[in-house]
Amino acid sequence: MPSQLPDTARDTGPDTFAVIAVAASAGGLHGLTTLLGGLGAGLPVPVLVVQHLDPRHRTVLADILGRRTDLDVKLAEQDEAARAGTVYIAPPDRHLLVGADGTLTLTRTELVHFLRPSADLLFESVAGAYGPRAVAVVLTGTGNDGAMGVDAVKKRGGTVIAQDPQSAEFRGMPEAAMGTGAVDFVLPLEDIPTVIRGLVEFKRQ
């Protein structure tokens, strides 16, 4: 496990990181609450979240998370611009994508590994839009959603964080991410916010 910032964080300039993309599934409410609650106010980048949700029901996830973090939390909307310090949740049954200008897109294109929203699609869009300025985070969950996506992020020079499976309620997603060899940091859930703050604030003083 690296003990310092990876080369991508050191070598690409003062505004290295521009977005955080997060994936979670089973056990994700606790994981996201801990992560977002630990980030504190004034985060200088937006956070894009795919949490696998039941498409048959309206979600109150944004409301719940918004009460447990100092960041603004909302369901993502079509064609809105991602703003620093705001968390955007993929709505049920919609893929969440981001463009190079930070504009969000919601689609109902086909399921990916039987899932919509798909972490893989979010991560791949983040990799394409931000390259080495992207951070991808895989939290607790079953299955392997996010594994292809973290590989894309790493290949474009981004940084990948996986929750330590020992601290995850469900190990499948973080273990699948680790199996790609693309993960820079494997961390207990409680340590992830500190590392993210360190990455996005690096050289910003």
Score class of each variant (00 low, 15 high):
M1A: 13
P6K: 13
D7E: 14
D7C: 08
A9W: 12
G13Q: 08
D15H: 11
F17G: 06
A18I: 13
I20C: 13
A23K: 05
A23E: 11
A26P: 00
G31F: 03
L32A: 06
L39M: 14
P44Y: 04
L48S: 06
Q51W: 00
H52Y: 00
H52W: 00
P55F: 01
A62Q: 07
I64M: 13
L65K: 06
G66W: 00
R67V: 04
R67C: 07
R67D: 09
R68T: 01
L71Q: 04
V73D: 03
V73L: 03
A76F: 03
E77F: 09
E80G: 01
A82C: 14
V87H: 14
P91S: 01
H95Y: 02
L96D: 07
L96M: 13
L96F: 06
G99S: 12
T105N: 12
T107C: 08
R108Q: 13
T109K: 14
H113V: 04
D120Y: 08
F123T: 09
A127K: 08
G128H: 11
G131A: 15
P132W: 12
R133K: 14
V137C: 02
V138K: 08
T140Q: 06
G141R: 06
T142V: 12
A147E: 11
V150Y: 03
D151F: 15
D164R: 02
D164K: 01
F170Y: 14
A176Q: 04
A182E: 13
D184W: 11
D191F: 08
V195R: 13
I196Q: 04
R197A: 07
G198N: 13
V200A: 14
R204E: 07
